[in-house]
Amino acid sequence: QGDIVVALYPYDGIHPDDLSFKKGEKMKVLEEHGEWWKAKSLLTKKEGFIPSNYVAKLN
């Protein structure tokens, strides 16, 4: 089961498979690959890669 993270900063995706998000948006982490994680937005239901240093895990 994936962790839920919250965006600390907004992110505008650079690549087509990036997931753009707004500050405060919550996402479910699907896979962790070093600095880039695959996640699904709980708001938009879209999936893509996010920079892990832009988010914090919720406990």
Rank of each mutant, 00 (worst) to 15 (best):
residue 18 D to Q: 15
residue 32 E to D: 14
residue 17 D to A: 11
residue 23 K to E: 08
residue 29 V to K: 04
residue 48 G to R: 00
residue 41 S to K: 05
residue 33 H to F: 12
residue 23 K to D: 04
residue 54 Y to A: 08
residue 15 H to F: 11
residue 2 G to F: 13
residue 16 P to F: 08
residue 10 P to Y: 08
residue 5 V to W: 14
residue 12 D to S: 12
residue 42 L to H: 04
residue 29 V to L: 15
residue 39 A to R: 00
residue 41 S to H: 09
residue 15 H to R: 13
residue 34 G to D: 06
residue 59 N to D: 13
residue 43 L to W: 15
residue 13 G to F: 02
residue 3 D to H: 15
residue 55 V to N: 01
residue 13 G to Y: 01
residue 18 D to I: 08
residue 53 N to V: 09
residue 2 G to C: 15
residue 34 G to E: 06
residue 50 I to W: 01
residue 29 V to T: 04
residue 4 I to L: 09
residue 12 D to C: 14
residue 30 L to W: 05
residue 26 K to L: 15
residue 19 L to Q: 00
residue 6 V to D: 02
residue 36 W to H: 07
residue 4 I to H: 05
residue 8 L to E: 03
residue 29 V to H: 01
residue 9 Y to N: 05
residue 53 N to A: 14
residue 25 E to H: 03
residue 3 D to W: 15
residue 12 D to E: 14
residue 21 F to Q: 02
residue 47 E to Q: 10
residue 44 T to G: 03
residue 56 A to Y: 13
residue 55 V to I: 06
residue 37 W to R: 07
residue 20 S to A: 08
residue 56 A to E: 12
residue 22 K to P: 03
residue 34 G to S: 06
residue 31 E to Y: 09
residue 1 Q to A: 13
residue 25 E to F: 02
residue 58 L to T: 09
residue 10 P to I: 06
residue 45 K to L: 15
residue 15 H to V: 05
residue 35 E to T: 12
residue 40 K to G: 04
residue 41 S to R: 02
residue 10 P to C: 12
residue 39 A to V: 14
residue 25 E to S: 03
residue 57 K to L: 11
residue 5 V to E: 00
residue 57 K to S: 09
residue 34 G to M: 05
residue 27 M to H: 01
residue 6 V to R: 06
residue 35 E to R: 12
residue 10 P to Q: 13
residue 48 G to M: 00
residue 44 T to F: 03
residue 17 D to R: 14
residue 33 H to M: 10
residue 52 S to K: 15
residue 23 K to S: 07
residue 36 W to I: 11
residue 19 L to P: 01
residue 55 V to D: 00
residue 31 E to H: 08
residue 23 K to H: 06
residue 46 K to G: 06
residue 58 L to I: 13
residue 58 L to N: 06
residue 13 G to E: 04
residue 43 L to D: 10
residue 8 L to K: 07
residue 55 V to K: 02
residue 16 P to D: 10
residue 24 G to S: 04
residue 55 V to E: 01
residue 10 P to F: 07
residue 42 L to E: 05
residue 59 N to C: 15
residue 38 K to Q: 07
residue 9 Y to T: 06
residue 39 A to K: 01
residue 44 T to C: 03
residue 25 E to P: 00
residue 30 L to F: 07
residue 43 L to M: 10
residue 11 Y to P: 01
residue 57 K to I: 10
residue 30 L to V: 07
residue 1 Q to H: 12
residue 40 K to F: 12
residue 15 H to S: 10
residue 17 D to L: 12
residue 41 S to P: 00
residue 12 D to W: 12
residue 47 E to N: 05
residue 44 T to A: 03
residue 12 D to P: 10
residue 3 D to Y: 15
residue 19 L to M: 06
residue 6 V to Q: 06
residue 35 E to C: 15
residue 58 L to C: 12
residue 17 D to K: 11
residue 31 E to I: 09
residue 31 E to P: 01
residue 18 D to S: 13
residue 54 Y to G: 03
residue 28 K to D: 04
residue 47 E to P: 02
residue 39 A to F: 01
residue 26 K to Q: 11
residue 28 K to Y: 14
residue 53 N to K: 13
residue 40 K to Y: 12
residue 4 I to T: 07
residue 37 W to F: 15
residue 31 E to V: 08
residue 16 P to W: 08
residue 58 L to R: 05
residue 28 K to W: 15
residue 31 E to S: 12
residue 10 P to M: 08
residue 48 G to H: 01
residue 15 H to N: 12
residue 54 Y to K: 07
residue 35 E to Y: 15
residue 42 L to Y: 06
residue 5 V to L: 05
residue 17 D to C: 14
residue 55 V to P: 01
residue 1 Q to E: 13
residue 5 V to Q: 02
residue 3 D to C: 15
residue 54 Y to M: 10
residue 20 S to R: 07
residue 4 I to F: 08
residue 55 V to T: 05
residue 40 K to H: 08
residue 38 K to D: 00
residue 37 W to K: 13
residue 32 E to N: 12
residue 5 V to D: 00
residue 26 K to A: 08
residue 49 F to K: 08
residue 28 K to L: 15
residue 18 D to A: 11
residue 28 K to I: 15
residue 20 S to V: 07
residue 9 Y to C: 14
residue 21 F to W: 02
residue 18 D to E: 15
residue 9 Y to V: 07
residue 24 G to C: 11
residue 17 D to S: 12
residue 40 K to R: 14
residue 22 K to Q: 11
residue 9 Y to F: 12
residue 33 H to P: 04
residue 49 F to Y: 12
residue 51 P to L: 05
residue 22 K to L: 10
residue 43 L to T: 11
residue 31 E to R: 07
residue 49 F to G: 04
residue 2 G to M: 11
residue 44 T to W: 03
residue 43 L to F: 09
residue 19 L to Y: 03
residue 23 K to I: 09
residue 5 V to I: 07
residue 52 S to W: 09
residue 8 L to W: 04
residue 22 K to V: 12
residue 32 E to M: 15
residue 32 E to P: 08
residue 23 K to W: 06
residue 14 I to L: 11
residue 18 D to N: 09
residue 46 K to C: 11
residue 40 K to W: 10
residue 51 P to Q: 03
residue 29 V to Y: 03
residue 53 N to P: 05
residue 36 W to N: 06
residue 28 K to Q: 14
residue 34 G to C: 08
residue 38 K to H: 09
residue 53 N to W: 15
residue 50 I to H: 00
residue 26 K to T: 10
residue 4 I to A: 03
residue 1 Q to M: 12
residue 37 W to H: 08
residue 9 Y to A: 08
residue 53 N to C: 14
residue 31 E to T: 08
residue 13 G to N: 04
residue 51 P to K: 05
